[in-house]
């Protein structure tokens, strides 16, 4: 029963990882940009949430009403102001510029909030649980997983059933020809980054409710998100959710064997997938 419990908890944890990954996956899909600062942006969202909660006394989940639009705005400005100028055939500029951003965000947070671990207080939600058979499920992890499913379903719907989703796919397919259709790729990229950081905001708030965080934890979140994307297969959002779940389950099972093995077990699962199926478990089928 312990093992079943570990797998269930890991699955729910995977929802959070899928939220880390969704923004990363979206940005790569639309503009082939890998954002090294992604993890730090998640942490930035958590700090924004913390600030809103402290200033207004709102429940952290309600703080999303402020944090999501703020992060989306930051995303749009970041893309139009800096990142658009790094896109091209050369791989180095986006990589190094987002790496520089990562350092700036991390140290900026350190300057403003110090290195002390922080946590958002979600009150009764944090400890609430319900029984399912002989398992006890936390309301927060279940809610997190449900939000992940809703977010991914929403992104999927947006990509395949709306005009803006069509524009994202068109720009991703062929930037020049998309421009000939009257699409301003800089604006479309800005919107994609805004959307990605909106999702990142949700991930950051849920992270900040679930565990304590400090300015240095961004790198780890980037890596978890990245592993979920690669395990699931590039360009497939549902695959990313599956990748997050596999990573989460590997971690909880690892932790069950030895607490020191939690994170390592996740990495090992990732490396095994990389060795056996480098294209990921569910790569996008063309068409």
């Amino acid at each position: 029963m312990d093992w079943v419990n570990a797998i269930v908890q890991g699955t729910l944890l995977g929802g959070l990882y899928a939220l880390f990954a969704a923004g990363l996956s979206l940005i790569f899909g639309v503009m082939r940009l890998v954002n090294i600062a992604h993890g730090d942006l998640i942490v930035l969202a958590a700090y924004l949430g913390l600030t809103v909660v402290m200033a207004t006394g709102l429940h952290p989940l309600l703080a999303l009403v402020f944090v999501v639009p703020t992060m989306a705005t930051i995303g749009y400005i970041l893309q139009r102001g800096i990142l658009n100028f790094t896109l091209g055939d050369d791989l180095l500029p986006p990589l190094l510029v987002t790496f520089g951003l990562s350092v700036i965000i991390q140290n900026g947070l350190l300057e403003m909030y110090s290195a002390d671990p922080q946590k958002m207080n979600a009150g009764a939600l944090e400890t609430a649980s319900f029984a399912m058979g002989s398992l006890s499920l936390g309301v927060l992890p279940v809610l997190t997983f449900a939000i992940a499913v809703v977010v991914i379903a929403g992104l999927q719907w947006m990509f395949y059933h709306t005009a803006i989703g069509r524009a994202f796919r068109a720009v991703s397919d062929n930037q020049d020809i998309a421009q000939l259709m009257g699409l301003n790729k800089r604006h479309i990229f800005g919107l994609a980054m805004a959307l990605a950081l909106g999702v990142t905001a949700i991930a950051g708030i849920l992270l900040g409710i679930r565990t304590s965080f400090d300015p240095s934890v961004g790198g780890g979140r980037l890596i978890f998100g990245f592993e979920a994307v690669i395990i699931g297969g590039l360009g497939n959002l549902w695959g990313t959710l599956a990748g997050g779940v596999i990573l989460g389950v590997a971690q909880t099972i690892g932790a069950k064997i030895d607490p020191g093995w939690q994170i390592l077990a996740g990495h090992i699962a990732f490396l095994i997938v990389l060795a056996v199926r480098p294209q990921g478990l569910f790569p996008r089928v063309s068409g």
């Binding site: 790094t86 500029p93 190094l96 510029v97 520089g100 700036i104």
Partner: peptide, 9 residues
């Protein structure tokens, strides 16, 4: 970090 970004751009 800022200097590196500016140099890169």
């Amino acid at each position: 970090g800022l200097v590196a970004i500016i140099v890169m751009l």
